[in-house]
């Protein structure tokens, strides 16, 4: 009797489909396309042409002046793009969050994202050529801002429109004028949105390569372009090191943004992250 129940109990347990099972597919995907590539980059970074262990790649990258200039330029472009996106995006998001039809209007900002960014960038290039604008850093910056602005507006809008109106009313009741209400109430409550907006713009801009290449005819050479060249020319070691450097920047900026966001977030402003 006892053995029979045990036999019965066992298969029942084995075939039980828990919620966890549905996650396995994604775990498999993650391992294949996120973890393994990272491991491969890490391994490649320490191998030379012949497959021997070496730290020569590190030395090559950090002693080559041009690589560091390119890295500096990329960070510079990232900072400027993020700043412009924030300056344009914040007023827009603020205005939209105050409007009753704001949700629909936000769609207009998100709609272009439905078109592949490569097609949009090629179209931008065609417009610049038709307008006889010289392709260069200016057009690259325009393309970057144009492409990444929705990533700034979206989290800002989410966090701004989730601010409880009663906070603002309370501030007004206590005698604050409009600018004080904004600076002392709305701005602090939207820090979470600002931080996720900055992260979502800054990180892709420092690693982008197609926009800079297309909108400057290859004259502006950013970190992403450099990594691509390295892999094209078969310099896998240095290319991997550069990818790791990029990853380090992504992690650092993520960490910093989280820290600032946590310190300032009063717990009301919701962000996308």
């Amino acid at each position: 009797m006892t053995s029979a129940t045990a036999v019965q109990a066992k298969p029942r347990k084995r075939f039980k489909i828990t919620k966890r099972v549905f996650a396995y597919l994604y775990v498999l995907f993650m391992v294949l396309f996120v973890v393994l590539p990272l491991v491969m980059i890490l391994v490649n970074a320490f191998l030379d042409d012949g497959g021997n262990l070496t730290v020569e790649n590190f030395k090559t990258f950090f002693t080559e002046e041009s690589s560091l200039i390119i890295l500096g330029n990329s960070l510079f472009v990232g900072v400027v793009t993020t700043a412009i996106c924030l300056l344009i995006g914040y007023p827009v998001a603020y205005k939209l969050s105050r409007m009753s039809s704001g949700k629909i209007l936000v769609l207009f900002f998100i709609l272009p994202m439905g078109i592949n960014f490569l097609i949009r960038t090629l179209a931008t290039k065609a417009i610049f050529i038709a307008m006889d604008v010289t392709l260069g850093m200016g057009t690259v910056l325009f393309g970057m801002v144009y492409n990444y602005l929705p990533f700034m507006i979206l989290p800002l809008h989410t966090s701004l429109s989730s601010i409880d109106k009663s906070y603002i009313e309370a501030a007004q009741d206590l005698g604050a004028d409009r600018s004080t209400v904004f600076l002392k109430t709305v701005l602090p409550l939207s820090v979470g949105g600002i931080m996720s907006g900055i992260t979502m713009v800054f990180i892709p801009t420092i690693s982008t390569f197609a926009i800079s290449q297309l909108l400057s005819n290859g004259k502006i050479f950013l970190f992403g372009d450099s990594i691509q060249t390295k892999f094209d020319q078969g310099l896998y070691g240095v290319g991997s090191i550069m990818s790791l450097v990029m990853l380090a920047f992504v992690l650092i900026s993520n960490f910093l943004m989280n820290r600032i966001g946590k310190n300032n977030n009063v717990g009301v402003g919701r962000s996308l992250w």
Partner: peptide
């Protein structure tokens, strides 16, 4: 010599000039 040539090519692509447009944008911001 491949590595040296590729490095030279990167220096050419990076350009020696200061990215003035960037600096102006930053100043404006």
């Amino acid at each position: 010599a491949n590595d040296r040539v590729v490095q030279m090519w990167e220096r050419i692509k990076a350009g020696a000039e200061t990215p003035w447009e960037l600096i102006w944008c930053l100043i404006a911001v």
